[in-house]
């Protein structure tokens, strides 16, 4: 592949690159960070990356909103000229899922802080080893 080909690969498919980078940031945060809240933030970035991926695959250049109002949209019923609404709707559910996960995770974090007095994983493991 030529240099222009590589540049094209990055520029034309920038939405995929954004989601891949965000996903790696999220995974890195969950694996490398030792603070539990930072891990939770990493988890949320990971989930958001996938939500962005879904939303980005629905868009089309110059397409109309997926609202079929008869007085304006009668001539635009060709699916190729309308943004695909399905991924957006799916992601509404995924957002709810990620909020619920976040809620449970934060509630557990409060319990962990009450019990150990810290949210640093290393310190918690020291406490557990000495107990």
């Amino acid at each position: 592949m030529t240099a222009a080909g590589y540049i094209n690969l990055i520029i034309a498919k920038y939405n995929y690159w954004i989601y891949i980078v965000l996903m790696c940031v999220g995974l890195w945060g969950m694996i490398v960070k030792r603070n539990l809240v930072k891990k939770i933030i990493g988890m949320n970035i990971l989930q958001t990356a996938i939500i962005l991926f879904y939303v980005s695959i629905a868009t089309k250049k110059g397409a109309a909103l997926p609202i079929l109002a008869h007085h304006i949209g009668a001539h635009r019923t060709d699916p190729a000229t309308i943004i695909n609404p399905l991924p957006h709707v799916l992601m509404l559910t995924a957002i709810v899922v990620s909020v619920a996960t976040l809620g449970v995770a934060l509630a557990l974090t409060i319990n962990i802080y009450k019990r150990y007095g810290t949210l640093e994983e290393d310190e918690i493991h020291d406490l557990m080893r000495n107990a």
Binding site: F53, V104, A105, L108
Partner: peptide, 28 residues
């Protein structure tokens, strides 16, 4: 130590579910 075990379960479980969701997205 249940809260800590559960939080680690959340981390692993969420990565697993997210990967499944991503696979479904590719198929879609």
């Amino acid at each position: 130590d249940a809260a800590l075990a559960s939080l680690n379960y959340i981390f692993m479980g969420t990565i697993g579910a997210s990967f499944y969701l991503l696979g479904v997205g590719y198929l879609y």
